[in-house]
Nucleic acid binder design. Structure first.
Lengths: 203, 203
DNA sequence: AGGCTTGTTGATCAAGCGATCAACAGTAGG
DNA sequence: CCTACTGTTGATCGCTTGATCAACAAGCCT
């Protein structure tokens, strides 16, 4: 029995195989970035021929777009749930920022940054990116509005402020991606900046 | 005379050719991004054989790193000069932010974002990226210190604040790159955030 | 004028990518 | 049982990338 020869993959149902492919693509993207999600890499990871990936997936651009959505979408629901569990309406936003900026999400940050670049040649991906950014902004805006209703924040255009805040989060995250400047005060600094944008009276 | 056939390139001195290559690489990067700086693209632009580019340049990774440094370095000196010309010590930082965030620098922003991704596979580029980030942070820190000496700002660690501020700038810039959210208030929002980080008393 | 340095080119290689196609092989249904 | 469906593979194409090498040609120097 030539164990070196690639054994034929066990036959599985289409839906099962598709799930396997999606999972493999996700783990590859988390480990090595979205651009490493190739049919050959995915095929090798789950022990199937590269062409089989393509057979199940219609186009690699689409698989990459799906993988992006999967990873980032999971992060968003995770964070949303986290914010929901904070009782204090004015504490949700700071808690969320602390969680997002704690430096343990470099995988997802990398996917984000890569998506901004790849999105210029992958229209489907670009559309998913915009959708996820909208969703993130909506989450931040809703937290701002809650705080506003509680009389803590005072902001004219919550959506605009949320967009700006999201930019700040992503920028600081991207920097940490390059192995640059891991200041422990960054959460505090960010919170002060956010308070200012939200019209919180200082002191 | 077969005009369709590529005429042999006029012989030039090594330094002259190198300058030509660097200039071509820069313009290509500005137009289509750093990842479009290939030996074939550069060669085609200045009408020489692709291999000649490599002959003058040692390695493509190095040419890309040099091109990054060239573009970003030029931006930095431009901005530095701009800040230097602002008489009011407390007005330099706001002026600089307004200039950087005015949405006319998408070319350079794109190069930045691309560099964070490419830097993971191009060690030389990564090192240049960190150096340029350090330089940027130093510029911002110096402006902060000037304002502090003038008694306008009050900040414990100017370098840390400068790093944070740089992250905000880059994040907002990156977002604008994806054609997302071009709010006209973003400069004002950013300035309020910055004032808060710099310990400026509100109102 | 002749020769040597050096800029320049074309052929060629090994990778890598996405994608198509015909052929193989399990598995369920008639 | 054996046929039809469908998961699966291998061969192959066309394209791209960086890189090496031998050969060619222009010009400077003696």
């Amino acid at each position: 029995m030539p164990s070196s020869a690639a054994a034929r993959a066990t036959r599985k149902s289409a839906t099962e195989r598709r799930a396997e492919i999606a999972a493999a693509a996700e783990s590859i993207a988390r480990e090595s970035g979205l651009s490493s999600v190739t049919m050959r890499a995915v095929g090798a990871r789950i022990g199937i021929a590269p062409t089989l990936v393509l057979h199940h997936v219609e186009s690699m651009d689409l698989l990459v777009a799906d993988t992006f959505e999967r990873i980032v979408g999971a992060e968003l629901s995770e964070v949303t749930e986290f914010a929901r569990q904070v009782a204090d309406p004015t504490g949700a936003l700071p808690a969320l920022l602390g969680s997002v900026l704690d430096g343990s999400r470099t995988e997802v940050t990398r996917v984000w940054v890569e998506s901004w670049v790849l999105g210029r040649e992958n229209a489907e991906l670009a559309s998913r990116v915009r959708a996820q950014m909208d969703a993130w902004r909506a989450l931040l805006a809703s937290l701002i509005e809650v705080g506003e209703a509680a009389g803590v924040y005072r902001v004219a255009d919550p959506l605009a402020v949320a967009g700006q805040l999201l930019g700040m989060i992503d920028g600081v995250g991207a920097h940490s991606l390059v192995g640059w400047q891991d200041d422990e005060n960054r959460v505090d600094l960010m919170l002060r900046a956010v308070d200012a944008m939200l019209g919180v009276a200082s002191h």
